[in-house]
Design a binder for these strands. Sequence first.
DNA 1: CATCTTCAGATCCTATAGGACCAGGCACGG
DNA 2: CCGTGCCTGGTCCTATAGGATCTGAAGATG
Lengths: 236, 236
Amino acid sequence: MQLASTGSHSEGRPAGRPVSRQVLADHVYEELLASLMDGRLEPGTAVSIDGTARELDVSPTPVREALARLEHTGMVRRVALKGYRVAPVFTREDFAELMEARLAIEPVNARLACARLTTGHLAELERAVADLKDAPRGPSFAEFRGYLEADERFHRLIAEQTGNQFMVAAYAALGGQIQRFRLFGGVGITDADHAIAEHQAVLDALATGDPEKAAAAMAEHVQKVRGRAIADAPAE
Amino acid sequence: MQLASTGSHSEGRPAGRPVSRQVLADHVYEELLASLMDGRLEPGTAVSIDGTARELDVSPTPVREALARLEHTGMVRRVALKGYRVAPVFTREDFAELMEARLAIEPVNARLACARLTTGHLAELERAVADLKDAPRGPSFAEFRGYLEADERFHRLIAEQTGNQFMVAAYAALGGQIQRFRLFGGVGITDADHAIAEHQAVLDALATGDPEKAAAAMAEHVQKVRGRAIADAPAE
DNA sequence: CATCTTCAGATCCTATAGGACCAGGCACGG
DNA sequence: CCGTGCCTGGTCCTATAGGATCTGAAGATG
């Protein structure tokens, strides 16, 4: 029906995307991921396979494949013969566990990344921090979306710069959850000034080339994030 | 050949229901996972969707879903429009990275698990170590399969006993790879005596209730595993 | 009024069909 | 002998059909 595969751009999809040689399931995956990150899909709501297929104007088969991949990220949960649901909201205990895990993994990433740091890597990190400073920080999601993206990018870059594929995988298992918490934790961006300063401190520590210093800076950042989030926690 | 028979080793249902209803994709997933773990699917070989479907006497749809889940574990790799292939053999560098990651994560797990240890948990760990001692250690895979299973179970139990779902996820991202390395690293089980002693040491340290001791014992174990593997490494 | 039955719709799950692409073999012309 | 074109089979990918199960509401019955 749609999906004019070779060359010709069909009018089936809005916003005529080339789509030429991309698998449809990948598109569905990214679309669902964006919806989850943006908060358009709130925790607890069901994600119907057929419904999503109708909404995106594709058949259920690619949707099924995309959801199978998403399940492994912890963003959606699947119950056999019942369907998929968006993973429930974080409790305070979930948040504590997440920070405990970050505290175990991210300083190690900083230490390893510091040992292999190149000027190119450093430039990327500097760009991320600059984007963090420049990003708008309004109350609505659309306004602080750039901020969250830069924040996540900074941490992900450090994980990737370890050169260790398994540390990247371990961090990736957490990365999505971190953003999801920021969205549904209730508080918006209230600690940007502190957070930016801490990111800058991590960056400076990395630039000195002292791995222990970098690890300490990262550990301090994570601990302070935890502390602020607990202070700002909604009454609930 | 194929399914129809209810799971032999998977936990049985409360027997009240015939449970004839099970999702086919789950069976395919388990079957493929077992094939990967057993070495029946050697690294680098293609995993054809249609071919697997014919072999298991199902349609390609559940196979596609199972492979989408497997991809996220790192056991198979997918190239868009080209299909799935079993992930390539570990290089020496991959192994070093894996051990680096284990060294970052597993001692933390031991420390956290130690803090929340219960008698029930301890009993499970003791059983795992006992199984490790009793397991046959022949040259063929079928013979040391039980050994590998007990080894993996020991480490997984410690991860689960942290009570931290994210540390479990982080470890799970590694767990499968550890077994795969044991299979294709070339060496069979040559260090069982040492490894059993180290597992016992970790268990003892946990039993003392001293978290730092437990972490240290686990770190020593991982480091020694790395050292022995490097010593035994095939010429390549 | 309360409870049970029935039924229509939605959903999940699997099978099947068909289009597009790729690799390899084979005949044919130079 | 060698290169080229054709063809066939294999594979991936998506759409569609149909069976099985669950949900929820309307209607019937005590």
